[in-house]
Design a protein around this nucleic acid. Structure first.
Length: 282
DNA sequence: AAACTTACCTGGTGGC
DNA sequence: TGCCACCAGGTAAGTT
C-alpha cells in the first residue's frame, strides 16, 4: 500500500521525469476518484509549467505555473494508486484514469480501487498549507522537526491525554504523518511497544525509541524503493510498489524473526495489526 | 474534545 | 464450477 515511502519514491521519480516540462493536454478518462477530478483541469492546466514537486504526508504536490494561473496539483495514491511517466505512444492500461501529456512524456494516474485523489489548489485561494486536506496533518517524520530527540518529544507531547491505542494514534496522522497500516505495525515492533497500549500511558523514553523506529523503518523503505525508481519512467515497468522484508506485517502465525514466537494479529478499528506478543509485551 | 463508525471502491480469495 | 461474502486500507464526514 502506498504510505509515505511510496509517495516519496514517486515524488523523486516525478522530479526527475517531469520537472520543467509544460503541460500540453489533460485527459480525464474516469474522474470518479475519491473526489471528482476537477473538470476545469482540462481547460486551465495546459500551458502551465511544472515548477516544483514536493510531498506532504501522503500527498504528492506538483506546483504548476502559467501566465494566467498558479497552483498545485494534489495527488494522493490512496490504496492502489500509481503515477507513471511513460512514452506518449505507450498503451493505455485498464484503470489509467487521468493523463497529463507533457510533450516528451506522459504522466498517467492509475488506480484500480479509485480511493486515490487528484485535486487542484489555486494559489489565489490562499497558502497551500491551509488546504483542508493538509491543514490538520501532523509533523513530517523525516523532517528536522522530528529528528533525533525532537521526534520523541513530538510523540510524547502529542499523546498526553489520549486514551486510544498507540497503533491508532500513529494511523490518525494528526501527530505524525505518513505512517500507514504496514509501517505502523513495523515501527511498533522495532520499538518493542505493544500496538494495544494506550497512547497516553507511554513514557518519554519509549516514545524516543518509537520515533527512532519510525525514522529507521520509513528510511529503509525509501532506500529500497529508490532502487525501483527506474520503474517510474519505464513504460513496461511494474507499478511503483516494492517489497519489504517485513518483521511482522502479513506474517500471522510465522515465527518472529527475533524470538521465534508466532506473530499474532489483532483487529483495531477494523484494521489488521500484526505484532509479536513476546517482543512487544507492553 | 476525543473516540468511534461508516462509506468509498475493486480485485482476489476462501468457503460451500 | 460458480457464487457469494469478505477483506485489503487512507481518509473524512457523521455520530456518540
Amino acid at each position: 500500500m502506498p504510505e509515505l515511502p511510496e509517495g516519496e519514491v514517486t515524488r523523486r521519480g516525478g522530479a526527475e521525469a517531469i520537472l520543467g516540462l509544460r503541460v500540453a493536454h489533460v485527459t480525464i478518462r474516469n474522474g470518479n476518484l475519491r473526489w471528482p477530478v476537477p473538470e476545469e483541469l482540462t481547460q486551465d492546466l495546459p500551458g502551465s509549467v511544472v515548477k516544483t514537486i514536493e510531498r506532504r504526508g501522503k500527498f504528492i504536490l506538483i506546483g504548476c505555473e502559467s501566465l494566467q494561473s498558479r497552483g498545485t496539483l494534489m495527488i494522493h495514491l490512496g490504496m492502489t494508486g500509481t503515477l507513471r511517466v511513460v512514452a506518449p505512444d505507450s498503451e493505455v492500461r485498464p484503470h489509467d484514469h487521468v493523463e497529463f501529456d507533457l510533450g516528451l512524456v506522459v504522466m498517467r494516474f492509475n488506480d484500480p480501487r479509485r480511493v486515490g485523489a487528484i485535486l487542484w489548489h489555486d494559489q489565489a485561494d490562499g497558502p497551500l498549507a491551509g488546504s483542508r486536506h493538509l491543514a490538520k496533518l501532523g509533523v513530517e517524520p523525516l523532517s528536522e522537526e522530528f529528528a533525533c530527540q525532537a521526534g520523541g518529544e513530538v510523540l510524547f507531547r502529542g499523546s498526553r491525554g489520549r486514551t486510544l491505542p498507540i497503533k491508532q494514534l500513529l494511523l490518525a496522522g494528526d501527530i505524525v504523518v505518513g505512517v500507514g497500516n504496514i509501517y505502523a505495525s513495523e515501527s511498533l515492533f522495532r520499538a518493542r511497544i505493544s500496538p494495544k497500549t494506550a497512547a497516553g500511558s507511554i513514557g518519554r523514553a519509549r516514545y524516543h525509541r518509537l520515533a527512532d523506529a519510525i525514522r529507521v523503518t520509513l528510511s529503509a523503505a525509501i532506500d529500497k524503493g529508490g532502487s525501483t525508481l527506474r520503474d517510474f519512467v519505464d513504460s513496461s515497468g511494474a507499478p511503483g510498489y516494492f517489497q519489504q522484508d517485513y518483521f511482522v506485517y502479513d506474517r500471522t502465525g510465522l515465527p518472529c524473526r527475533v524470538c521465534g514466537q508466532p506473530i499474532r494479529t489483532v483487529r483495531q478499528a477494523a484494521r489488521s495489526t500484526f505484532y509479536c506478543a513476546q517482543c512487544q509485551a507492553r
